[in-house]
């Protein structure tokens, strides 16, 4: 689907965490991102959406969420548990 260029990582996460078939996974992510399912593969739309939500973009822009920072925001946005984010939260809750 294009990974971070579009919403490929987000759709894949719904297949992995909720066993969603492709139509359901796209519909779920589209609703969370407030875009159409077709726009999930549209680089022009998704670049702006990803920047606004600060969930990681493919180019290296200073200040944008990177790595696990972006994944923590994705977990909240999609309402899913991401194992590495859960581990981070456990590590910092002292």
């Amino acid at each position: 689907m294009g990974g971070l260029r579009t919403a490929g990582d987000l759709v894949a996460r719904m297949q992995m965490t909720r066993k969603m078939r492709i139509k359901d996974a796209k519909a779920y992510v589209a609703e969370k991102l407030k875009v159409s399912s077709a726009d999930l593969s549209n680089e022009h739309v998704m670049r702006e959406v990803r920047e606004e939500l600060d969930i990681g973009i493919i180019t290296s822009v200073p200040g944008c969420a990177k790595g696990i920072e972006a994944k923590a925001r994705i977990a909240d946005l999609l309402g899913i548990e991401i194992n590495s984010v859960k581990r981070l939260k456990n590590k910092i809750s002292f």
Binding site: G2, G3, L4, G8, V11, A12, M16, I58
Partner: peptide, 9 residues
């Protein structure tokens, strides 16, 4: 794979 190839996973 993530940054140059646009891999979904």
């Amino acid at each position: 794979h993530e940054r140059a190839f646009g891999g979904d996973t």
